[in-house]
Amino acid sequence: MTTPTRLLPLLLLGSLAGTAAGEPLVVVVSAQQRIERLSQEDVTNIFLGRFRTLPSGLPAAPIDQPANSPLRAAFYQQLVNKDVASINAYWSRLHFSGKATPPRQTNSDGEVLRQLLSQPGAIAYVERRQVDARLRIVFEFPP
């Protein structure tokens, strides 16, 4: 009985990833930035408000996909194994203290890219096929 209950989230994960894009998600920064690689832990700390600077010394400016984007759900699911509601609840708890701020919300994929390139310490997650020379992949989810 334990096996099905433990397997269930994995099955869900697999189906979501497949149906969302079929493309793996990667974390990228502007190629101009002096960041080569980040660990999953670094990525978590940056996107969930713990680190407010990048290893390069620039203030960190994480950028989120649109709120109801399947990419967003997939990303957090893969990063910290939490659904979007939990992430939203987390940010809402910190909202009033004002000490930490959630990643900047975008309206579209294009806005993600634009902000990535325009902001000095921007960092975001995108589908691998969207990565081009302007961007540098600093983290990939292990297969």
Partner: peptide, 14 residues
């Protein structure tokens, strides 16, 4: 859980 969050983000107020 609140403590964890406070510590995570080093939120003195929280």
């Amino acid at each position: 859980s609140t403590l964890r969050v406070a510590c995570f983000v080093k939120d003195v107020q929280l």
